[in-house]
Computed example of a mutant assay.
Amino acid sequence: MSRQDNTNRGKASGRGGNNHRNRSNARGNAPLKTEAPSKKTGRQQDPVSKPKLKFDKSGKEVGRREVAPKQVKKSNPKDGIRLNKYIANSGVCSRREADTFIATGLVTVNGKIINEMGYKVQLNDDVRFDGRRLNPEPNTYILLNKPKGFATTDSNAKGMTVMDLVANASTAKIKPFGRLGRNATGLLLFTNDEEFVQKYSKKGISRLFHIALDKNLKAEHLKKIKDGLTIEGKEIAVEEISYVDNSPKSEVGLKIKHTGNSVIRTIFDHLGYDVMRVDCVTLGPLTKKDLPRGRWRTLTNKELNMFSMAN
């Protein structure tokens, strides 16, 4: 085979057809094979069961193969909370001590003694230790300056309620303590402390109301209210009543130790007056100072201590 000079490269081969010599791939001139691009199958790699791969700009794999962490199944609140944890969260004792109390029959759920370890309860269950009801949430106390037009209830069937105003106040299941009519305004307390509710439902809470009537209140009627009324066989006693300074005699201040609101209308309806406006000015030692209408705040420990002393 004769050697050909490199200058003949690309010239016609002389076989006709004006063919040109092509570069031979023999003797190591074959091009390097490249990896065929992967075909897109439309399937996505499972990030949980298969390792994650990292590539550089040229497509070369780099670094170590990492496996995605397994997804942890989140607990469902509807599944409940273990009874010993419920007891521990209430501040009575530790979880280990709670197991001992459960085993000895000191714990009841909805009236039944529970001895089963790992028993689960719901947050709204009646859980009692040695007869005392437990609360797994910290005691919370919210004071609201209620505006007009909101019903004092935790039922959604009543339209706009005071619960809408304190929706972001706490994650605890607070409820209004005491009542104010839909068109009444002023201080309203919310809490999840059932012992507090039971205690002051019996004792009552001193509340001062600013009341506007449809006409001037007669002095003789003011005296009757001050001395105490008996309406439909029930005695209604007030702590204080007086005309409001620098206001018409149709406006009075009435202090009464009662958690309800209808008692005010009962008093004045009995004497022939229509109540035009009711505003709760003070609640125990609490006032509306620095609390605009429609706003709420959390009570401080100092205020709670004052509350206990005043009532």
Rank of each mutant, 00 (worst) to 15 (best):
M1T: 08
N139I: 14
R64E: 14
K33D: 12
R15G: 14
N124V: 11
V62Y: 04
N261R: 07
R182C: 00
A169D: 07
K11W: 05
E195P: 01
S94F: 05
G186Y: 04
T140I: 08
D290W: 05
P136Y: 03
R295E: 10
I256G: 00
V121M: 12
M160S: 10
G118M: 01
D193A: 11
A219C: 08
K11E: 06
G228N: 13
P31C: 06
N124P: 08
W296D: 13
R128Q: 12
K289E: 06
A36K: 15
G16R: 11
I87P: 01
K52E: 06
L83N: 07
K39W: 07
Q4V: 01
P37K: 08
N110P: 06
N192F: 04
P37A: 10
G253E: 10
K175D: 08
R297W: 06
R27T: 02
K257H: 01
D79R: 01
I264F: 00
Y200E: 04
K158D: 15
E232N: 13
N183I: 10
P285W: 00
R43N: 08
A36Y: 06
L180M: 10
N8W: 14
S308A: 13
K57P: 11
K302F: 15
T287S: 15
V67S: 10
V244R: 14
K120R: 09
R179W: 02
Q198S: 13
G80A: 01
I114E: 15
K288N: 07
S24H: 06
S24I: 02
D290E: 14
I81R: 00
N183D: 15
K255N: 09
K215D: 07
G159R: 11
F101P: 00
N183G: 10
H258M: 06
G228D: 14
V263G: 00
N25L: 12
L217V: 07
S155L: 12
I211F: 02
T41N: 04
G186D: 05
R64P: 03
E66C: 03
L134P: 04
V252C: 10
R182T: 00
H258V: 07
N156V: 15
E194Y: 06
S58I: 05
S155E: 14
K218L: 14
Y86F: 14
R9H: 07
V92W: 11
N8D: 13
V72C: 04
K257C: 03
Y119P: 02
K78Y: 03
Y141I: 01
V238D: 02
V109C: 15
S262Q: 12
F150I: 09
K257E: 04
R23K: 10
N6H: 15
S2C: 08
F101G: 03
A310V: 07
F55H: 12
F196G: 03
G159N: 12
G17T: 13
S170Y: 04
A98L: 05
K70R: 12
S201V: 03
N301V: 09
T287W: 09
L208V: 14
V281P: 03
I174N: 00
T300N: 12
N216H: 05
L53H: 11
R96M: 11
